[in-house]
Design a protein around this nucleic acid. Structure first.
Length: 858
RNA sequence: GCUCCCGUAGCCCAACGGCAGAGGCAGGCGACUUAAACUCGCUUCAGUCUGGGUUCGAAUCCCAGCGGGAGCACCA
């Protein structure tokens, strides 16, 4: 309990009270409506700063605090640089958790979602990010998702959205299909269940048509996106170039194509392998003996029973079944036995390969397991012009000449020869290098009409159908007579039916199918009874273009205004977690390119610069309730205040690094803020004071920070800016207590600059300081002062003198000292003479005015 | 197995190829206090993971190794 006396002291001392400051400024800021972007007549240049919008799963947590904190630092920074900054916020509010909560607790998914949003908005308000709330959007609003449907129809018209049957990833827990990107190490990205396969007819977006552009345009992002994300996307798209080769099949009219990156090794092909779950395998086995049919059938069953997890384990033994059919090698007419084996995938290339066991590890493993022939056609011992050969050493370390090398024998070593070399046993290709042989073999195939250059991708088309309720209905009607009929644009949005009365529990088919009134419609084309498509869209569709919806979030006539896009987009600074490196970020890039092709956008990449924040950990591991190491966002806010929390997160280290909460000190941050704030109350000069009269030493620190802060902010070195602010506050304190005193102009200048820059991290404290310094709100809109360059150069500097790189003396010299003068001074130094001794001076490097290095010999 | 990133005081982190320290945490000493906490002041602490190389000069660039982290992993 505080006594009256203590309270009085409290007030007298003007103690820093973060709660009071927050309560004071929140309503005032809202009244001032500071962060609305794009006001009519605003002529400032524009910046678009965006943090990935949150899924409303409950309340905000420390991860949000970090991510939105960094986004807000960027937004505030650009405002201080004189930009009209668009910094919107919205809600990624469709998705499974709402539905699962509905099933578990009987809540309506919509009610659950919007209640969470209310809760999170209250937390955001306290956290005070500088959002333009007037553009708030919810992807679960019909006003939003109607444009998902509109985009879907546009893509359907272009053939980009299509339906096909196939084996798809199936999550047995969520009871829905998953896109390839949502399967992580064979597990469901969301719930962790082991993913299985299921044959279904589903909707896809043809991302593979954009694979080359998605890959090639990554070059534009080099340097502006974390290199990790760029390489992950490259990896994910996984382009390989080579050739399609036509193989005739005995007893089949048409030849079958095979994709290979190594057409140069055609002469080394000794068998062919087809994917057991491909149509081709089924067709080939149909013409085989009953015994083969039985063995193949058993094999196929065992393959289908495998989960992706089993398939993912490497070095598991190769399995397969000989189909008793033969292919003809187009280049030399050889008969190649055809096998079915699960190491060949049905949905990559053509689901069939030519096996060259001597030069492909997987083929070699298979050949060794089934005693199939191996023929070496590339001599990898032979050096190739233009390639520096690695010369192997024998056991005594003596380089071995080619004739001393052990014979190439993949069969006995078990190692396939995949390196550079010279072609042998390959007829017209003999003697060529690997790369020349690849080129020549493709030419030969083209001349004979047996093959052509080809590319393949690891990337698969994006499966967007979901068999769940809480998502965007797919705007297609299925009619017995007309087939797939798009819902007319004028009938959009196709609203979700009311959840009440629907059984949302996962059954493997969409709950929408049970909404009879909703499903049964008349065909827009022929008027006959028809049914709606009952699947909903992957929620990653919602987030693929939301950055455009912010530009006119309240426009009911269109998805977005291309003129606004011209003004604001693409996003200048995007902030979010690396977990979206290949999901959201790839899909969003794809949508942007589609919209470009449709003529709605003039750019092809959505996010010019990307910052990935790290994670907030506790004691070295991810925070979670079950581990008992959860740091609650709300309780941290209560204990230390918004500003201290934000400063702590910004100061902890580089933004992209993980932060361990055990290593940081919100108490320390609060102390720093209190020190800064106290100074603003002690400044004894008035705002019209003449800066030039101020203490030069303190002014130098102030202006050095003004000079450095922009490039530090733009390279995301927020932790360094905070450290430099601490330095400035410490120096100001010293100037007041032990220097020129609180009335000095430099003290006011330092305090004002502290407030201006502190606004990036601690907006409440900065605003209150700004008011105490005699100004009107808001400091958030004040352009940063320009550094006085004259103050940055010191008149006297300490020059260091090195002898052979070791510091031997320091000299106080004028900053304008000439090279000659400095060298003379250095040579005259007694310490230098001692260090040089009898040695001969061979070189003197002078970097006036800071450094001299004397190199000696002897 | 392949690829990428990172190793600086007890801890978190700074340092255009040029004096290893901006800052914080923790520790120590002191002031305030009857005392403690808070606050304030002062202060100790590493030669940059190891080994080579380039350079007048390397934490920084190059090579190899060790340690840690991440991504990819039958994609023909």
């Amino acid at each position: 309990m505080a006594t009256e006396q203590e309270s009085a002291q409290h007030a007298d001392a003007g103690a820093y009270d973060f709660a009071a400051i927050q309560d004071k400024w929140l309503p005032k800021w809202e009244e001032l409506d500071l962060f609305r972007a794009g006001r009519p007549g605003d002529t400032r240049p524009r910046k678009y700063v965006l943090s990935m919008f949150p899924y409303p799963s409950g309340d905000l947590h420390m991860g949000h605090a970090e991510a939105f904190g960094f986004g807000d630092i960027a937004a505030r920074y650009w405002r201080h640089q004189g930009f009209d900054v668009l910094h919107p916020i919205g809600w990624d509010s469709f998705g499974l958790p709402a539905e699962n909560a509905a099933i578990k607790r009987g809540a309506d998914p919509s009610a659950w979602t919007y209640a969470n949003i209310d809760q999170q908005k209250r937390s955001f308000r306290r956290y005070a990010p500088s959002f333009d709330w007037s553009r708030e959007l919810h992807t679960s609003d019909p006003e939003y998702y109607r444009w998902n449907q509109w985009l879907f129809l546009k893509m359907y018209e272009q053939g980009i959205a299509y339906r096909k049957a196939g084996l798809v990833n199936w999550c047995p827990v969520d009871q829905t299909v998953l896109a390839n990107e949502q399967v992580v190490d064979g597990h469901c990205e969301r719930c962790g269940a082991v993913v299985t396969k299921k044959a279904l007819t589903q909707w896809y977006f043809r991302v593979t048509d954009y694979a080359d552009r998605l890959l090639d345009d990554l070059n534009q992002l080099e340097g502006a996106w974390p290199s990790k994300v760029v390489s992950m996307q490259r990896n994910w798209i996984g382009r390989s170039t080579g050739a399609d080769v036509e193989f005739a099949i005995e007893g089949r009219d048409a030849p079958i194509p095979v994709f290979t990156t190594r057409p140069d090794t055609l002469y080394g092909a000794t068998f062919m392998v087809v994917a057991p779950d491909s149509e081709l395998a089924a067709e080939l086995v149909a013409g085989a003996s009953d015994e083969v049919k039985t063995r193949f059938g058993d094999y196929l069953d065992s393959v289908r029973a495998e989960s992706d997890i089993d398939r993912l384990s490497t070095d598991r033994p190769k399995t397969g079944v000989f189909l008793e059919r033969y292919a003809i090698n187009p280049i030399n007419g050889e008969r190649l036995p055809i096998w079915a084996a699960d190491y060949v995938l049905a949905d990559y290339g053509h689901g069939a390969i030519m096996a060259v066991p001597a030069h492909d590890q997987r083929d070699l493993d298979f050949a060794r397991a089934f005693d199939l022939p191996v023929r070496v056609v590339v001599d990898t011992n032979q050096p190739v012009t233009g390639v520096i050969p690695v010369i192997p050493l024998d056991e005594h370390g003596v380089p071995m000449l080619p004739e001393d090398l052990p014979a190439l024998d993949p069969v006995s070593t078990g190692i396939a020869l995949t390196g550079e070399g010279r072609l042998i046993n390959s007829g017209p290709l003999d003697g060529l290098s690997k790369s020349n042989a690849i080129r020549r073999s493709i030419e030969m195939l083209e001349e004979r009409g047996l093959g052509r250059p080809a590319k393949n991708y690891r990337l698969r088309d994006w499966l967007i159908s979901r068999q769940r309720y809480w998502g965007t209905p797919i705007p297609i009607i299925h009619c017995e007579h007309c087939g797939e009929v798009p819902v007319p644009e004028s009938d959009l949005p196709v609203r979700l039916p009311d959840a009440a009365g629907l059984d949302l529990s996962p059954k493997g088919k969409s709950p929408l199918g049970a909404a009879d009134d909703w499903v049964n419609v008349t065909c827009p084309s022929c008027g006959a009874p028809a049914t709606r498509d009952t699947d909903t869209m992957d929620t990653f569709v919602d987030s693929s273009w939301y950055y455009l919806r912010y530009l006119n979030a309240n426009d009911e006539t269109r998805a977005f205004d291309p003129k606004e896009a011209e003004k604001w987009a693409p996003v200048d600074q995007y902030v979010g977690g690396v977990e979206h490196a290949i999901l959201h970020l790839l899909y969003s890039r794809f949508f942007t390119k589609v919209l470009f092709d449709l003529g709605y956008l003039s750019f092809t990449e959505p996010f010019t610069s990307l910052l990935n924040q790290g994670m907030v950990l506790m004691d070295g591991s991810k925070m979670s309730k079950s581990k008992g190491n959860l740091v609650e966002f709300a309780s941290e806010l209560d204990a230390h205040g918004t500003d201290a929390l934000r400063v702590t997160l910004a100061f902890a280290g580089p933004p992209e690094d993980d932060i361990d909460w055990a290593d940081v000190s919100p108490v320390g941050s609060a102390k720093f803020l209190a020190r800064a704030w106290r100074i603003s109350g002690e400044v004894a000069s008035s705002p019209d004071v003449e800066w030039k009269t101020g203490d030069p030493a303190l002014r130098r620190i102030t202006h050095r920070l003004l000079a450095d802060a922009p490039h530090l902010a733009e390279s995301f070195k927020f932790n360094v800016i905070v450290a430099r602010l601490m330095e400035l506050v410490n120096a100001t304190r010293k100037a007041i207590d032990q220097g020129p005193g609180a009335g000095d102009a430099a003290v006011r200048e330092a305090a004002e600059v502290t407030a201006m820059i502190l606004d990036l991290f601690a907006p409440f404290t900065a605003e209150d300081m700004w008011e105490r310094l005699g100004y009107e709100p808001s400091v958030a809109l004040v352009p940063w002062r320009k550094p006085d360059r004259a103050l940055l150069v010191e008149e006297q500097v300490t020059a260091i003198v090195q002898v052979d790189g070791k510091v031997r003396d320091r000299l106080e010299v004028s900053a304008k000292v000439t090279v000659e003068e400095l060298e003379q001074l250095a040579r005259a130094s007694a310490a230098v003479a001692r260090a040089v001794g009898e040695r001969e001076i061979v070189n003197v490097i002078v970097r006036a005015p800071k450094l001299v290095n004397i190199a000696t010999r002897g």
